[in-house]
């Protein structure tokens, strides 16, 4: 059998976008393998999720009704049980934070080779996966010559599945072994609130590790003032405590869509880009012509921010 089982991502009652993208990736892969696509919907309001997810290209949606929130032990046990029953050739999972909390464990348990963070999949007798290395500076292809295999899929790389499908929705009983559960989720907290909401800004001046020292933050603050813009940053600036968490743009920070986003000394790692690629106009200032930020920028200056930023401030302060 050459079938694909894709595991759906949801959080706090909401299906996450990558779920619909997994359907597209899974349906394409199933086509190429000459098999069918099944979905696994584990925990939460599984009936409602299954109905919402019923898009073109899905054969069966298996629902495992156990608990409200994500727990990796429940996921691993459920996927193992589904695997024993269905024997899929391909296991597709999201490369989300929760995906990375169970995908390596289930692959290890089932003895499957694992390739993470796929941005492209193709299948012609064997699987070929495209992925990135070195902070998105190089792209690679890997082939996987063993089946079954497990792959995690990067968000926003595949289109969201559309159309209404005619999948069979099948409740799947898993007797979860509570004694094997080694972790308990006790709550959630939203962080990054405060006085400034960078998602409201029309113009963002955003600073990254290229700024080198805390005392240099003042330079980009002056630029933001001169432009009437709001200051935001990449993660290392917040990790270092140079700016508060509510300024962080990216996967674990805020998603921003300003009219103009000026990235200064930011390389353009995927987790940063996830938070700003929807900006109307993107400007990048970076010494490194190979920096991935230039792949998504509309305008750029290859140069030293310590020369360019003062010159830009002078232009506006005149």
């Amino acid at each position: 059998m050459s079938d694909v089982l894709a595991v759906i991502d949801h959080r706090r009652g909401q299906l996450r976008d990558v779920s619909y993208e997994l359907i597209t990736a899974g349906a394409d892969l199933a086509d190429a393998m000459g098999g069918t696509l099944a979905l696994a919907v584990i925990s939460g309001d599984v009936d409602q999720f299954a109905e919402t997810l019923d898009r073109d290209g899905i054969d069966t949606i298996y629902t495992v009704d156990h608990g409200e929130e994500f727990n990796h032990d429940v996921y691993v046990q459920s996927i193992e049980a589904l695997y024993d029953e269905l024997a899929p050739t391909a296991l597709l999972m999201p490369n989300s934070v929760n995906g990375l909390d169970y995908a390596p464990a289930i692959a290890e348990r089932l003895g499957m080779p694992l390739v993470t963070d796929a941005i492209e999949l193709s299948y012609d007798e064997t699987l070929t996966v495209t992925r990135e290395m070195y902070g998105s500076k190089v792209e690679t292809t890997v082939t996987v010559s063993e089946e079954p295999f497990a792959v995690t899929v990067r968000g926003s790389e595949w289109a969201k599945a559309e159309g209404t499908g005619g999948a069979t929705i099948e409740p799947f009983e898993v007797s979860v072994d509570e004694s094997a559960m080694r972790s308990t989720v006790t709550g959630f907290e939203e962080v990054g609130g405060g006085d400034v909401d960078i998602t409201d800004a029309d113009v963002l001046v955003s600073v990254g590790r290229g700024i080198e020292e805390e005392e240099n933050i003042e330079l980009v603050e002056r630029l933001a003032d001169a432009l009437g813009a709001t200051l935001s940053s990449s993660r290392p600036i917040v990790d270092n405590g140079w700016l508060p968490k509510n300024r962080q743009v990216g996967q674990s920070g805020k998603v921003v869509t300003p009219d103009v986003y000026i990235a200064i000394g930011i390389s353009g790692a995927v987790q940063h880009v996830a938070g700003m690629k929807g900006s109307e106009t993107i400007v990048a200032i970076n010494t490194d012509p190979d920096a991935p930020i230039f792949d998504i920028a509309d305008y750029g200056i290859i140069g030293d921010l310590f020369d360019v930023v003062p010159a830009l401030i002078a232009e506006f302060d005149e």
Partner: peptide
């Protein structure tokens, strides 16, 4: 079973104006 078969610089889809 995982073999690295190619490595290349990502093809830029952008037309960044420098």
């Amino acid at each position: 079973p995982i073999e690295l078969t190619a490595m290349y610089e990502p093809e830029s889809e952008s037309n960044v104006e420098l």
